[in-house]
Amino acid sequence: MPRPFLFPTRITPPVLPIIQGIVQVLFDGIAFGMLLFVMSVGLSITLGMMHFANLAHGVFAMLGGYVTVVLMHKAGVPFLETLPAAFVIVAIVSVPLERFVYRRMYSAKELDQVLLTVGIIYMAIAAAAYVWGPEPMAFALPDYLTRYRDIGSFSFSTYGALLLAIGTVITLVIFYGLERTRFGAMIRAAVDDRRVALGVGINVNRVFTITFAVGSGLAGLGGALGINALGLDPSFPIEYLVFFLIVVSIGGGGTVKGALAAALLLGLCDTAGKYYVPQTGAFIIYVVMLLVMLWRPNGLFGRP
């Protein structure tokens, strides 16, 4: 005796692939969005604090990728164990760059900042090509990250699950650090009003250096995590520049909430576009950005 139609125990064939597709897009899109968030949240905060247009943010992401590949290939370090190294090494490398190069340019005109950081991008591209060659780096995820895990009628990649897990942990740590610690309050104070922050004794330069280092380290971590999804070659900083800029402009500078919302939106739209309309999929994100910018010119959470 067949069960009543209204209470199906299994999803019937014509509907199942559609739902599977939606779940797939949601999962992959959010995972990709988390990756974008980890890579670009530092840029959002530092832009909000110093109003410095650091277009070279992607250089740090690329460097993180190379740290991971070199450690894996030359030293045989397992993938997961290279990730903290990518974070720490990139964070350390970013400090002298901020201290000795960027700091002189905080009060410079935006055009000068853009010229400086675009110059740094091209220097980094040339340096990476010189050291590691112009070709994309060969990279293979460890076996356990290439598998799929079936839950009910759906299957999820373990790599996507890793991005989600790390992204979630980092999001929680950032929110806690920013909203619940004294140092986080100092960052927000400096974003609110840098002159008054200085005037009540906050060492804004030091706060900024630490924030910049952590943000750069996160970019490095994102670059390392994302090799599988984004690839790794010397043109990385320019290829993905537009992603960072979209996250920052849609989110609004200086807000972690905004960066998170923008990164997830971007991840979902990009994934959905490539899944449903492969011919024009890569174009969708620009349409979304245009619409958001028309609707809210200062970004979703931006201040006027």
């Binding site: 004294r182 309050a185 100092m186 927000r188 104070a189 974003v191 609110d192 009003d193 002159r195 008054v196 922050a197 005037g199 009540v200 906050i202």
Partner: peptide, 14 residues
């Protein structure tokens, strides 16, 4: 020059 995104306590703490 009150920091708008900080609570009263945080304005003092920083």
């Amino acid at each position: 020059g009150i920091f708008a995104s900080l609570t009263v306590e945080e304005n003092l703490a920083v």
